[in-house]
Write a protein that binds this DNA or RNA. Sequence first.
DNA 1: GTTTTTCCAGTACGATTGCAATGCAAAAAC
DNA 2: GTTTTTGCATTGCAATCGTACTGGAAAAAC
Lengths: 205, 205
Amino acid sequence: MPKTVDHHARRTRIADALIRVAARQGLEAVSLRQVAAEAGVSTGMVQHYFRDKNAMMAFALRAVAERVQDRLEQARPDTLPPKESVRGFLMQLLPLDGERAVEGKAALAFQAHAAVHSDVAGAVLPDPEPLRAHIADLIRSARAEGAKQAGAGGAPARSKVPAPYPAAVALLALAEGLGTQILTRECSPEDAVTALDAQLDTAFG
Amino acid sequence: MPKTVDHHARRTRIADALIRVAARQGLEAVSLRQVAAEAGVSTGMVQHYFRDKNAMMAFALRAVAERVQDRLEQARPDTLPPKESVRGFLMQLLPLDGERAVEGKAALAFQAHAAVHSDVAGAVLPDPEPLRAHIADLIRSARAEGAKQAGAGGAPARSKVPAPYPAAVALLALAEGLGTQILTRECSPEDAVTALDAQLDTAFG
DNA sequence: GTTTTTCCAGTACGATTGCAATGCAAAAAC
DNA sequence: GTTTTTGCATTGCAATCGTACTGGAAAAAC
């Protein structure tokens, strides 16, 4: 076998360039030549590693999704109490530094793309349900712990606290919504964190 | 003066076509020829009413924003109690029918566009602050009413209820996040409504 | 009637697009 | 050494892009 190279690494490098172009100028500016130039390679090489533009886009879409997933799993310190653990998750979803701003803008562009091309999105994007279920479980366990500490003679559980699963759905959707509002400058990062913390306070007992 | 036509109506008709194309195939597919074909007019006419493509895009961007704004003001029955009034607002932001799905997909595409071209977005998009302030006021008045009905000897206000302004920020961001999750099929409309209602229950005492 | 101004269809042009095809360097297989 | 397979640079092509431009129909002004 002749000259051997790491295909996945090459594809990832090209996908990185695509993400940077998308974050800087939008998906409309993503072309084979633009991406190749951003990656510092020739268009022929891009063509060598991706059958066509759609394949390149699908790979990049999956790459952003996996990067977010990696960040979430990396920020999973199971030693922390449930509430802090969930807070760690959700903060990772907010574009609070430059790196995540780039990823966030690219993710926003891909969201619009996914809403229109649901076929590729469905084939490439991960199922959001496990994460929701995990957060719902953390909420449940935290509330059980809180009820135990309140003692047997205490007041019954307060009404008006949302059920765990809707609360988990709301937390994730809220983080996503706040993230896009930060990117579009509709909301300051400080207000976003304040709103998210308030939401955490009500979701956990 | 020669043949007189309603410029604004013509522009709006073209912008409608642009929105439909963007909702169906994304902003990448928005070209002068595509939009003209969708509107059933010639590209020459599009050029006559818009100096260039950017002007057309900016007009369409403003058009979606105004349409959402109109829907919100139209669904403002001040006779209802505050909570129902806010619920009416937020439900209008969810893409629960075909018409709003089209608008929502276009709005999603424009959001990604606005995050990248913040100059045009800043010049065209309305300030989100008044709506947030209005919702925060409704929350305040509803809580004051609730406290009065609870009587003077009752328990003090429960802790862990978020301050009105962060609650308003959260409600709007949550509606936006749920809306995009519905469009990307990450979340069912039923779960979205459930999560939003739960959020309303906690925001209003 | 003529004139003038607006409205818009049509065409043309240079740039850019996605993609196919060609060709060659380099490294493993022999 | 030769052969063979892979990795990639380059070029070319048809299609589409945004935009400039031309020309004429139509209606108000005269």
